[in-house]
Amino acid sequence: MKFTVNGLSKRYKTSHILTNVNFDFDMSVCNIIALIGPNGIGKTTLMRLMAGITIPNAGDISIDNSTNLTYEAWARVNTIFVPAGERGLRNKLTIYQNLEYFSALSNQNYQENADHLTSLAKLFNITNFVKNDFEKPQLVKRKRHLY
């Protein structure tokens, strides 16, 4: 499957963050793609666009698959965006308690989220680990939880 970013532009008020960004890659050949550049150059904005949570002012992202979904609709189902930083998780709660708390805040089904977390914990071999308080794990392990 080919992933294509075509003429993507994004501005906030009069500040142009991205202007006519173009690149592509074959998802069957490249599994890890790095966006490189110094801080403040638009990497996070591009990430948010690829996660489908920010809408471009011009251009689009496409993926040649068999569905008729728009990219944004595809991305909301098929991407996990892990922003920089820890984004306000509660240190005194366990991972599951954090999940319950934020599921309630966003009116999502806690049990579905908990089942998904359990399957991810098995994948990363951290099944026992996620029962700890969030503040106890080291930072890299916290980031695992975010993934």
Partner: peptide, 22 residues
């Protein structure tokens, strides 16, 4: 598929298979 942003080319060179310089 992993798309990762970084300002640390030295670190990311150990894993990435394509690079987009912004």
């Amino acid at each position: 598929i992993i798309i990762v942003s970084s300002h640390d080319p030295e670190l990311i060179s150990t894993v990435a298979q394509s690079y987009v310089f912004l």
